[in-house]
Structures are given as structure tokens and as C-alpha cells.
Design a protein around this nucleic acid. Structure first.
Lengths: 223, 223, 223, 223
DNA sequence: AATGAATGAGATTTCATTCAT
DNA sequence: GATGAATGAAATCTCATTCAT
């Protein structure tokens, strides 16, 4: 409840009154979204009532409708907000790092860190969104497609560099990598595994090394 | 009321009518469960109405309540029925096959074949059940735990045989393997990938080889 | 459950097979009615389900419909059966006894004894039927009217004999007497009072003497 | 949600809107309760549907749930509201009047007047609540116990003053008195007796005098 | 006679959404 | 902007009753 959100500085030079009002509005909106993350993570999208979210946010439930069209839009906003962060991260990783292992390590690192910081968010993304074709049909976030594409690029680069075998479709390998990450997270989410830092670290290492070794070209003079 | 009736032998001599009735009852139950699989897969558990299931099964919705306590129990029955098949398969694989690769291949084969035969069932299991901690908390199917355990045994055997590196927890590797399989299936379920046989075959090969290579001990001449 | 009902001897001289069948039928019917009394007393008419009655009687619920048109008819049968006993008792009391006090004593005695023997029956009659105008409207048992009439006669006889003051309507006094009896019983039914024999005896005495003294003519040559 | 709100004084200066809203809310609640009294009296608790109450009150049925948890809580509120009036009356009678006859006369007067003003309320209290042990078990209104206690005190005072014979338990006599009043009312409720004022007056007199005479100590020159 | 599968009307209850204040 | 009263569609579930066996 009431987590202290760091307020971003806004573009200076506007009417102070307006800005203050905008600020308050943005705060309220964020307050509601934060509450929604927790409630959705706790009860699931369907079972979560708007009034639950409002109560968690400490506002009247009518206000939720002031900021969002309906319940689904609340969920969409959450996805938008979070996936755009993931996509940005992936894009920057592609730019900043070289080599398959370094890149995947950076990505897995980031994901696991997010989990440490806000497990509810990950719970929600994994449980409600992860793969739901039904939601996907209604929602179809281009962000998600973009993240797949970036990953695919990384793997294709690996194939070009001889780090990844070329006899398998890069898109398919992308699937497998995401599967490991996702299910790895899910194991924590569903309490299949203990939620402690050591475990998280081991998980990171296992995912990266298993995948990198697993997709390495082999055979002739190979490994 | 009167469901899951254990058939006892009754006074011989006039039991035919009774038995026929019981048979019909069992048929109707199965008819309802089959319909439920399709409806759940199509709309998801929450969005599926009992009346949808009844309509799909071609019975009055009251009959669903005649055989099942409520909607959740319908879902549970489906899980029970299907997971027990998976568990049996895994156990038999452990008995019949030797060697990590052979065993995992057999398992992945089976899973993908089930998908070919009854994609709705897999859709349902993957989407609704796959990992939902919320459902899991209420339901806690021992069958699921059992399947994890069997897989873990297989990996531990691999460690003992030197096929799997020993510096990583077998349970953790189990997670990763299941993640690949599950997300591999999910890619079809969510239409992220084309549902054709060639693709399924390539997926099978990719999963097994990536995982087996990925978890192989390295070192000797290796990495 | 399964209280041992004393089977009445039937008119001798009929076809034995027929009689035996009739007997069995009557037994089943009585079995169902006895069960119904207990269930209605326990849960109330509305909350009692036909299946509860059938279960209590140890028969299939379809059979209830073989013997009774519907749930309401089951209740009616119970009333019929019991009130006719009460009416007969009152009529015989009017014949056998002389004097207001003797007659009322006999009546109260009987009522309280019934309570000792079958509290459920009294519970049911008092709670579901006692005064329910709504049921009364649908049911309108002539038996009930008859019992009022007999009592009224007894009071009118008392007026004629100078035991009861004549300045008050006999029907009204009937109401008051029945009110005492009914509420007296109700106090046990609702556990407002301890259900022990001494209390029952004191209740009997109090009802009769309070009423008899209360309605005695007074005044001039009176007290 | 937000029912039975205790009105707190809020920051003075802009509370008018809020207060007006609260007033409206209280009005609506009462409107619903009044409607419920009529519907329950007409059809009985079980047969009354929430939608009947809503229709009678002229509101959407959802609103009933906005103010009350469920149907039973509606009934409870009615009991609470009405019995507290009865209890207060009895307490004030005990204070204001002296002598058994005066006190009981005042009580019976009040009861019969309530009946004249709102027969439905009395119908409901008498028919649904009067004694129902089943409801009583769930509800157990302390108000009802309190009214018994006050009456008992009045009778004990009568015993102390020599107006009531001491050889009978005061609680038992309380039962009888209430029985007369209740059944007296019931006779009107169930249309066993004509609902006219003259009859009501005669009933009043008959109840009080029968009871007072009936419980008077006898002996001296008596019987 | 006896059974219980099958039906479906109908009741309760929930909750997203609108809207007056 | 903020509130929460008001609405009513829709979903779950119950159970009296019918009927084939």
C-alpha cells in the first residue's frame, strides 16, 4: 500500500497551476495502476474487482473510471508501461553488449532484478499475460512482438557469428529461451522454488549457460 | 450426489438395468467433461459459463450440477484425468528407456503428439493450469508434483551417469526443461508459431538437443 | 430415524397378496411422512428439500412423488393426520368430562403428553402451522376450524353453567386459551424454557388454573 | 459497503453536499425496509424475493445489496428497529406506571395500537419471528430477551405486591401473558377474527382482565 | 413399486459501469 | 476532480418435478 513513488521532474516553464494539477492527476493515475498491479497479481484479472483496486489505491471506485475507460484498459496500461521498459532494455542491451552470452546474461539479469524489486509485477505479467492467447487476441500488444523481434535479432547475430547453430530457426530458439526465463520466474511466482537471492543467482547462471551451450554449433571440430 | 460411483457387484439376477444406467451416467459425465475442455480452452475458465458447457455437451445445465459440485470441480476433474495420463507416461518412460536423451525425447514426443491429437486439451492445460499459482493454491494437484518428481529423477540419473553436470540443482534444471516444453507448446497454442507438422518436428528436436547439450558437463576437452 | 411404527391390523378376509402389497405401501407412506415431520421440524417447510425427506426416509426421492402430489401435499397430510387426532381427542373430552376445569385439564394434558412423545410433531405444528395465515390461506384445514368450534362449545357450556363470565365473546376467550397453550408449547420448542417433565407439569397447572380463574365470573356475588 | 454509517462531524465549511447525500441514503434505506416489511408480511420471508422488495420500494434490486448484505440482514434490520421500540415502551411503562393491571393495560394498549397503525409490521413480527426457533438460532436478538426480562420484572413486582400468586414461576406466567397477546394479535392477523376497532378493544380488555384475575392469589375468602 | 437421471424455472448475488452531486 | 449511490445484465446454483427404465 502507498509505496513512495518517485515523482519525475516535469518540463519547467509552464503555468505552475496547470502543472501542479497535471502532476496530481498523474500521481493519482500511477497510484491506481500500482494498486491494480498488486490486486491483479493477488487475485487475477477476472476475480479482481474495480472496487478492490480503488480500495487498495485509497480512492473512490468512480475515480478509476475517470482515468481509465474500463477494467481491461487498466490491465493494458500496466502491460504497456512494463513491456515498454523491457523492450527498451533489450534494445539497449543489443546496442551496448557484444556476444551472445553477454547479451543474454544482461537480459536475464535485468529480468531477475525486476523480480527482486517488484515480484507482483512479474507475477502479473507471467500469470495473466505470459502467453494467454485469449488476452493476446483482444489486446495484441505490439510491444510484445517487438521484444520477440529484438531477441530474434540477437540470436540471428549469434548465428552469423558462429555462436549459434544455424540448422534451427532463430524464432524457434527465441521461444525456447523465453520459455526458460518465463518458467524460471514462474517457479518463483508459484512458490515451486524458494524465493531467495542465492536461488535467483543460480537460476540466472543456469538459464544462460544451459541455453548458450545448448544452442552452440557442435559436431565436426566442435565442442 | 451419486457421482463417481464405485461399481459394486449387486445381487446377481436383476442388475442389468442398473448397470446400463450407470453406463449411461458415465457416458454423460465424459460427454460433459469433453465439452468442458473445449469450452474452457476456447474462452478460459473464468469466462466460460456453465451454460456454455451444457450447451456444448447438449445437456441441460442442471445436469452439470448433478455430476459436479461446481465449475471448479469440473476443471479439477479435467486436470486429474489428463495429468494422470502424463504422469503414467513419464513413469513408463523412466522404466522403458535408458539414457537422458532417449528419455527426454520420448517425453517430448508424447507431449507433442498429444497436441496433435487434442490441441484443446493442451491449450487448456497450458493456459489455465500451466502455472497459475492462484489456482494451484486452491487445487494443489499431487499429480503435478509427481510429474516434477519423475522428471527430477531422470535428471538425477543423468547426473549419476555423467550426462548432466552436477554443479546445478536437478530441480532447477527440471524447471528449465519444462519451461522449454511448455513454452514450445504455448507458441503453437498462442499461434505465435504455425501449427504444422514440420514445425512440430523441428520443435521436438530443438528442445531435446538444446537441453541435452546445454546441461552436458563440460570441461574435459570442452569449454 | 426408523422409528418402529406399530402396524395396525387390517380387515381380515381379503386377498392376502393384495393386502400385503397395500401394507407395504402404507408402510412406505408412513415412513415418508415420519421422515417429513422430522425434516420439516428441523429445517422448516421452505428450507426442507424433497431429497432431504427421501434421504431421511431411506427411499429414492422419486418415490415421494409416487405417494404425494408435491411437497405441499406432504405437509398437508401431516396436518391432516395430526389434527384429526386432536379433534377426536377434543370431541371425546367434551363427551367424557363435565365441568370447564376438568375438560380443559384433559385437553392440556393431552397436548403436553403429545409433546413428550413426539416433540418434532409439535414443533412442526407450532412453528409452521400454528397460525400462519399464509399457509392457512392455501390450506384451510376444516379440521382446524372444527377444533376451534369444539373448544368454543366447551366455553359456551361454561358460560351456561356460570363458570365463565358472559360479558366476553366465547370465541375470543377460545383464542386466549389456545394462545396460552400454543405459546406454552412454543416456549419449549424454542428452548425458551427447559424441556423437563417438572416444567411441563407446572406449565399444565399454570395454564389451566390461570385461565379458569381468569375467566370466572366476578364482581357482585363473585369472588 | 457504507451502510449504517455513523455520522461524524466533518470539517465544517463544505459538508452540505455530503450531508445531503447521507440523508438521501438514509431515506433510501428506510424506503427499502418499509417495503420489505410489507413484502415479508404479505408473502413470508422465504417466499419473498429481493426483487419483490426492490419493486415495492421502487428501486433497482442491486440497491438492496448496496445497503444490506443479503435478505436475512434485511429481516434482521426490521426486527432490530421494531423490537427496540417495543423494549423501550416496556421499560417506560415499568417506570411510569404502578400496579400490575395498569402496567399490563398500558402494554397491551400499545401493542394493539401498533397493530392499528401498521398491521403489516405486527403480521411480520408475529408470523415470521414470533417464536421461530430456527431463525432464533441464527439471529438471537438480545432485544427479544430483554423484552421478556422486563415483563418478568413486572410480574415479579406483582408477586412482591401480593397481586400475583407466588406458587408459580414468574417466567412461566410471562410466557402465558405473551401467549395471549401474541395469539390475540394473530387472530386478527390470520383473519380468524374481524379486524374492527370494537373487537380490538374487547380483546384488550379480555386479555388484561383474564390474565390479571387468573394470576391473582386466591385463597383468603377465595375459592 | 422404485430409482435417480434429466430438466429448467427461478432465486440469489456480484460487479462493471453510469451519473448526479 | 472526486465520490459513491444507483442500475441491471449476467452468472452461479438450487431444487421441485418429470420421466424413462
Amino acid at each position: 500500500m502507498g509505496r513512495a513513488v518517485v515523482r519525475a521532474q516535469k518540463s519547467p516553464g509552464r503555468s505552475a497551476g496547470k502543472d501542479a494539477a497535471d502532476d496530481r492527476a498523474r500521481d493519482k493515475q500511477r497510484q491506481i495502476l500500482d494498486a491494480a498491479v498488486r490486486v491483479f497479481a493477488r487475485k487475477g484479472f477476472h476475480a479482481a474487482r474495480i472496487s478492490d483496486i480503488a480500495k487498495e489505491a485509497g480512492v473512490a471506485y468512480g475515480l478509476v473510471y475517470h482515468y481509465f475507460t474500463n477494467k481491461e484498459e487498466v490491465l493494458n496500461s500496466i502491460f504497456q508501461r512494463n513491456w515498454s521498459v523491457v523492450v527498451k532494455m533489450m534494445e539497449s542491451v543489443e546496442q551496448q553488449h557484444r556476444g551472445l552470452k553477454a547479451r543474454l546474461t544482461a537480459i536475464v539479469d535485468f529480468m531477475m532484478n525486476v523480480y527482486k524489486i517488484s515480484p507482483e509485477t512479474v507475477d502479473l505479467l507471467v500469470l495473466e499475460f505470459g502467453r494467454s492467447s485469449r488476452l493476446a487476441q483482444t489486446v495484441r500488444h505490439p510491444q510484445v512482438d517487438r521484444s520477440w523481434t529484438v531477441l530474434q535479432h540477437i540470436l540471428e547475430a549469434g548465428q552469423a557469428d558462429g555462436e549459434v547453430r544455424t540448422d534451427t530457426d532463430a524464432r524457434l530458439l527465441t521461444t525456447l529461451f523465453l520459455g526458460m526465463v518465463e518458467t524460471g520466474l514462474a517457479a518463483f511466482v508459484t512458490r515451486m522454488m524458494q524465493r531467495d537471492d542465492a536461488m535467483l543467482e543460480e537460476m540466472k547462471r543456469a538459464i544462460v549457460s544451459t541455453f548458450v551451450e545448448g544452442v552452440a554449433p557442435r559436431g565436426n571440430g566442435g565442442r
